[in-house]
Write a protein that binds this DNA or RNA. Structure first.
Lengths: 252, 252
DNA sequence: CGGACATTTGACAAGCTTCAAGAGAAGTGG
DNA sequence: CCACTTCTCTTGAAGCTTGTCAAATGTCCG
């Protein structure tokens, strides 16, 4: 697979020039709120593929927005078994769970090269106080991400291997499409089969065989680091995947 | 099992008389915020065991706080396979995910008799605007619940049957203990083995055998509708369950 | 006493994991 | 430029955990 090196855009210096906001996938904010966000943002960082952004069990976690690239949240057991909790795509907020609550820790790792906006998490309370709308948005994002994890729990707990793989392909394709990252009917797909296995609660070998079977049946094509769905109807039926009408997402 | 009929306290008419707040497990709120909460609460309701509080796919979901009793969130597939996403205990907020986001629907069912405070979800925005602290708390609750689902996803995806059961027993015991519902080293335990199976992504039969094995090993006792942990150390080791220091929870 | 429901147990089948090993692609250094 | 290493993908075979089927026991309740 001769993967085309994907280009990850860097965060612009000013939030008013934010490329994500211009994509049309996110809700508009008032100029005042945008000013606040720009103040709230302390810096921007870039991360290498495989770099750990948040260690499992780490305290004092920073709050990020993923601007470009892919990352994922995960948890591991002491013998190395790993579960990927969800994949993070441009626009996703990172670090909310650690910032709040005593919820046990999870790690975050960059899957591709990433660019991130780093926020001063000590002004989070100021955000809620001075811009309730942004606080509301943050709650929206937390509830929305929980919805994704809910779906994954149903998948890991009650779907068989074929259904799980179909679900993952559909779900990621849709999410990427919604933020304008589908091009010519395909999306960049930087996951290894090990990532897929860890996200679905399957072994690497069984993931490979299942993936193979689905592509042999002509349901999808995974080539040159890109994913193309060839039979959306069939994939949706297998996964019982119900598409919901697209809607604008909050962005911080 | 001659279950002792558990007494579910009814919501008091005034929030200032809230028995949950008096339990000492929840964060204090200002008198003004408490007044707001009382206004925000539109009514109280009681539910029977097995009653559906929120239908899967239902729109216009009300926002509740569970005051007394147990409930659970779940999702089902078309052929009846069901996954319990998490159990809801007194103090838990219900309906946040539906209120926000397009996150696909889940149902909520009363496990025991329940008493609930019903909020006017159309004043949710007023809550964030007028009492940012309560908005902050709500985000906290959303993030905290996501933490629970994260744990369950790790459990369903990567733990074996024995580890899953040990995890569930430890987790529920701790949650109940934290809100003062442990008495004499045991807690009320109204789940059927089918509930446990649906929460852990196992079959009923295998759940039974696993539960049996653990109790034969002297790790726990399940009798008369109450759960007693007899070997916390061993259960924690099996489940890799790391206890976190107790902390006060927000309550709405 | 009869019916509904939860628990329990055994036997068998199946899906998934583990083990093992080869092939292809990509990067590295002599 | 080619050997060498590393990583990912792929495939076959065997075994084990878990699911399914079936049926008995126990409990609650009208």
């Amino acid at each position: 697979m001769s993967a085309v090196p994907p280009v990850i855009p860097a965060c612009p210096p000013a939030c008013r020039d934010c490329g994500l906001r211009r994509s049309g996938a996110f809700t508009a904010v008032t100029p005042q709120a945008l000013d606040f966000i720009e103040d709230f943002r302390s810096t921007t960082v870039a991360a290498q593929p495989g770099e750990t952004l948040v260690h499992e069990g780490q305290a004092n976690v920073r709050l990020f927005t993923l601007y470009g690239g892919w990352a994922f949240r995960y948890k591991t057991l002491s013998d190395g078994r790993r579960q990927i909790l969800n994949f993070l795509l441009p626009g996703d907020l990172i670090g909310l769970q650690q910032e709040f609550g005593d919820s046990s820790a999870h790690g975050v790792e960059a899957l591709t090269a990433c660019s991130l906006c780093v926020f001063q998490s000590d002004s989070l309370w100021a955000l809620f106080r001075e811009h309730p709308r942004l606080g509301y948005d943050m709650t929206w994002l937390a509830a929305h991400e929980e919805g994704h994890v809910d779906d994954s729990l149903l998948t890991a707990g009650r779907r068989n291997a074929t259904e799980r793989v179909a679900m993952l392909l559909m779900h990621l394709y849709r999410r990427l499409d919604r933020i304008g990252l589908a091009e010519g009917g395909s999306v960049a797909f930087p996951l290894t089969q090990q990532h897929i296995a860890d996200a679905l609660g399957l072994s690497l070998v069984h993931t490979n065989k299942t993936l193979r079977r689905l592509s042999m049946l002509g349901l999808h094509e995974l080539k040159d680091g890109r994913l193309r769905l060839l039979n959306t109807r069939a994939l949706a039926r297998i996964a019982e995947y119900y598409d919901t009408p697209p809607r604008l997402l909050p962005l911080l």
